[in-house]
Each structure stands twice: as structure tokens, then as C-alpha cells.
């Protein structure tokens, strides 16, 4: 269970999150929608202590992480996997070593064979063909890098998956593939997933619950069916975009 309680976050004078409150029950897929600069990524980074809220509380499986020191964050981060807006792969390592990176850290008892088997399993989970593991990140396409990033995240078997605009900069075909991968992984691995996105169509397709953020505040939320009935102008804009995309 992830819970936000009146969370505020400021950078200097600028308040990015203005009293956010919501809960995500275990096993659900929550989409956080909003235009650029509304604090979606900031919200996600607060869950795993990459940023800390100015005030308010954040609970992850009963632990208050809002002001938790860096040294104590490890067990929380161990539970969570985050797919960043950028693929964030380590340039100097091969695809294999990128996926194995967390495994070597978290499972020191694993043999080389066990690590290799897990890496292959995770790469096949994200539909990457054998042969890619020997390449460096800069030798594969951006879409493939995103998939490798996803494989690296799921390799350590997190209970909570956080996706920060996982389809930004991808073509529609790869976007669709990644979105279905999120659904597939969330269902197969029974994880709680939070997805930050601009993509209303995808949210309507795969989310259990949707939150719409605007200027640091939740302006609407509900199930996909409830959101379709929303009267809020921003939600209507998102829905129109989604319908247009579906129509075209």
C-alpha cells in the first residue's frame, strides 16, 4: 500500500506539489496524468526518497518514508523498482551487465549461472531477443534501451513498480508495446504499479485508477469509467486527445 497524506513539495519559492492525498491499494495500476511541469515525476521520486516532501507524509507498506534518511531508504528501494524517463542505463556496461547490476548487489549468493539465467529471463520478459545482451546501450535503439531499463528494474523482483513517462520519445508502435508490457508485467508479477504519463488512451486501457494532476493539485480521480464522465476541462482535453488518437 502506498499512501500520500497532504504532501507538499517546494523548490525554493516554487511549490510543485500542493497538498496531495491519495492511496494505492496493493496490486493496483495507478496512472498519474497531467501536462508537463505539474509535478508528476516529483511525486514519484518522493515515494523512493530521491526527493523528500517539504511537508506531509508518504507511507510505503506502513513505513513513513517522507523524511527517512538515505541510509534507511535501502529496504524501501529494495521493494520498489523505478523505470525512469530516460533509460538511465550505465553507458560503460553491456546490456547483460546493466540487467545483472542490481542482481549482483541484491543477491550476492547467486552464482554466475543463476544471474545469467535471470538476465535472460528478464530480457525475454520484455521481448528482447538473445544476442542483445552483449551490446552496449549506445549500440541499440532508444525503444530497446527502454525495454532493457524495464528488464533491469524487474530483475530484482520489486513489489512496487514506478514508471516515469515510460513511453516518452517513442514511436506509437513501441509506445503500444511498452504499455502492454506494463500491464503484462504488473499482472504477471502481481506488483503495485504507479505510471506517470501523458497518455490518456493508455490509462483508460490498462489503469485500475487514474489521478489527474494540474499545477501540483489533484483535479480529478477515479476509475477509467468514472474519468470518462468527468466535466473537468483538463480531463476533457485529455479525453478528446485520446479519442482523436483512437479515431486516427
Amino acid at each position: 500500500m502506498i499512501a500520500f497524506e497532504s504532501v507538499r513539495k517546494s523548490f525554493g519559492e516554487r511549490e510543485v506539489l500542493k497538498g496531495i492525498t491519495f492511496q494505492v491499494p496493493p496490486g493496483q495500476i495507478l496512472f498519474i496524468l497531467g501536462t508537463s511541469g505539474t509535478g508528476k515525476s516529483v511525486l514519484l521520486k518522493n515515494i523512493v526518497g530521491l526527493l523528500h516532501p517539504t511537508s506531509g507524509r508518504i507511507w510505503v507498506d506502513g513505513d513513513d518514508v517522507s523524511q527517512m534518511p538515505e541510509e534507511e531508504m535501502f529496504p524501501i528501494r529494495r521493494k520498489c523498482g523505478m523505470v525512469f524517463q530516460h533509460p538511465a542505463l550505465f553507458d560503460s556496461l553491456t546490456v547483460f551487465d546493466n540487467v545483472a547490476f542490481g542482481l549482483r548487489k541484491h543477491y550476492p549468493e547467486y552464482s554466475q549461472e543463476q544471474i545469467a539465467a535471470r538476465v535472460r529471463e528478464c530480457l525475454s520478459l520484455v521481448h528482447l531477443r538473445p544476442g542483445v545482451e552483449t551490446k552496449k546501450p549506445q549500440e541499440i535503439s532508444y525503444g530497446m534501451q527502454k525495454r532493457v531499463s524495464l528488464a533491469r528494474t524487474v530483475a530484482v523482483s520489486p513489489k512496487i513498480l514506478l514508471f516515469d513517462e515510460p513511453t516518452t520519445g517513442l514511436d506509437p508502435v513501441t509506445t503500444n508495446a511498452i504499455n502492454h508490457l506494463i500491464l503484462e508485467l504488473s499482472r504477471k508479477l502481481k506488483t503495485t504499479s504507479l505510471v506517470v504519463s501523458h497518455d490518456m488512451q493508455c490509462a483508460l486501457d490498462i489503469a485500475d485508477h487514474i489521478i489527474v494532476l494540474d499545477k501540483g493539485e489533484i483535479v480529478d480521480q477515479g476509475s477509467p469509467a468514472q474519468l470518462k464522465q468527468s466535466r473537468h476541462p483538463l480531463v476533457r482535453d485529455f479525453l478528446r486527445e485520446a479519442l482523436d488518437a483512437e479515431g486516427s
Binding site: 520498489c80 524517463q85 542490481g102
Partner: peptide
């Protein structure tokens, strides 16, 4: 900038 440092922190490094 490319969030590799955040990725390290997420992996417990």
C-alpha cells in the same frame, strides 16, 4: 541529467 545517478541510488548503490 540522464538519471543514471538516481538509478544507482534505486539499486542501493
Amino acid at each position: 541529467v540522464t538519471e543514471q545517478i538516481d538509478a544507482l541510488r534505486m539499486l542501493g548503490i
